[in-house]
Design a protein around this nucleic acid. Structure first.
Lengths: 278, 278
DNA sequence: TGGAAACTCTCATCCAAGTGGAGAGTTTGC
DNA sequence: GCAAACTCTCCACTTGGATGAGAGTTTCCA
């Protein structure tokens, strides 16, 4: 049987694939040319070898790596493909979940930037209705108000660690909050209570609810000023006749605290729930 | 201000990141150590630099490349992030569509293999009800029954090309079919009509419907035997009193036509719609 | 049959985002 | 003062190719 053989360029052109790619497939054992000239090393392919090339393309579409494909093709077993397909299916579901989470993170980030743009000036006091929120966090092991910044960093790291342990992904896209217990705050004692993230939806396990209601708030853009402004907030509540109704929260509203040259890249909202004397 | 500095190992450990990664970030300008000893080259980081590391992790979660991240961090502009987020959102939607298509392809493949396993032996004739199917294809430019295998390959390539032009992805995961016009088939003339894929759902444009109904079928596992078995199918219909009611179709039911050692890896179903004399 | 054009070969390098190792130098603790 | 732990730079390796250099081969046309 006189078989017509194609040089590598023709083969590549027919299959709309590059010549180096064909050479790679040869090298990796995915597709050996039907005949290789021992003198010149020229590769010659048979026309019916592009069925195999189709198969390779197909497996690539399925997201298999070249190494996996090579194994399947060497074993020549469909059962192997079946196994891989089942794996692949699981992997795709995984990827979908991940992509969904990523999408949520992007949406949160866009919202967050928008909010940042429209945020009031530093030191602005306001009375706001805040909807119910969900949180996931841990008690603080040390009081970072009394200690230095290392202490806060340590709490943050611990929170991150615990979040990862509990399967939170895209951790960085959530707002972080810290609390001071109502009694401490009212007495002017700065004692760190909990550190947590706002999760956006109810979480199982250690998740908690931050109730909706009216909050006395003040915005600022520097961590170092927290205590100062928290005191002012307390004063403001007292002067305005608002009664503290719950724990104080310091909410980090953007994580874009990275640009040294931009003083407003950090953005905090100090807040405390209040009721009104009748 | 006496700032506490951390050597690279501590910094890596605190941020649960590898030492070479930190060095890479230094090199790429993502995060320069606060101080580098000019004598020894030792890198020393400040504790407040892990905010920046957080930011990097965040942007990575968003799927940004290190180069993109470096640009953002160098420009120190949130507007740049905003832009990237918008892009990213679009990209995620794209990826979701792609993943969905991949998932469909995997499902089709699993179904296809299952069907292959349960397929009857070569040469088995059967009368089957086949549901309505959808197809997308083109007329054959040449008659590959009269020509050699090159001709068929050429048709196939042309179909592929047109499919890609028309935005079909995961082309390889669809079953391929070829037709012979009813009149030709009844007269025993093997003249290629159309070549197409079964798309699984209605397609706009050049899509066509293959009507549901009873089909006389025969299964085989070798391209070369098509004409032989197609004749037998015609005979079988005549003997059984079935009247041909439409175009003949040769359906390639698996694309796993790659394993030379496995004679059943190719799997065809020849079929022709029939009605019954009353 | 000669010569030029087109083709092919091998080998090397590059991409991203690291991982891992070798060999040499440095810091830290006892 | 010494050893352990740490860090440095440089290098190679990973995927799935792209791209190029320099040399050799085939094909076509005159």
């Amino acid at each position: 049987m006189h078989e017509e053989l194609l040089p590598i360029g023709k083969m590549a052109e027919l299959n709309r694939i590059s010549v180096p790619t064909l050479r790679l497939y040869d090298e990796k054992g995915l597709l050996k040319p039907r005949y290789t000239d021992p003198q010149t090393g020229y590769r010659y392919y048979s026309i019916d070898q592009n069925a195999r090339l189709d198969m390779i393309a197909y497996m690539k579409e399925l997201g298999m790596s070249l190494a996996q494909i090579a194994r399947v093709l060497q074993k020549e077993a469909i059962s192997l493909i079946e196994e891989l397909l089942a794996q692949k299916n699981e992997q795709i579901h995984q990827q979908m979940r991940q992509l969904k989470a990523q999408h949520d993170a992007v949406e949160r980030a866009i919202l967050s930037i928008e909010r940042y743009r429209k945020s009031p000036a530093t030191g602005t006091f306001s009375l706001e209705y805040i909807d119910r929120r969900y949180a996931w966090g841990i008690p603080c092991a040390a009081n970072f108000y009394a200690d230095d910044v290392h202490s806060y960093e340590a709490e943050l790291r611990e929170l991150r660690r615990r979040l990862e342990e509990n399967g939170f992904a895209q951790i960085h896209s959530y707002n972080i909050g810290t609390t001071i217990a109502q009694a401490d705050f009212e007495a002017g004692r700065f004692v760190a209570g909990r550190i947590f993230i706002f999760t956006g939806r109810r979480e199982a396990g250690a998740g908690q609810i931050v109730e909706s209601g009216m909050y006395a708030c003040v915005y600022l853009d520097n961590y170092d000023d927290e205590i100062h402004y928290a005191r002012l907030l307390l004063d403001w509540c007292a002067r305005s006749g608002y009664r503290i109704a719950g724990d104080y929260i310091c909410e980090v509203m953007t994580g874009f605290n990275v640009f040294d040259s931009d003083p407003r890249s950090m953005f905090l909202r100090l807040q405390v729930p209040v009721t009104f004397q009748k």
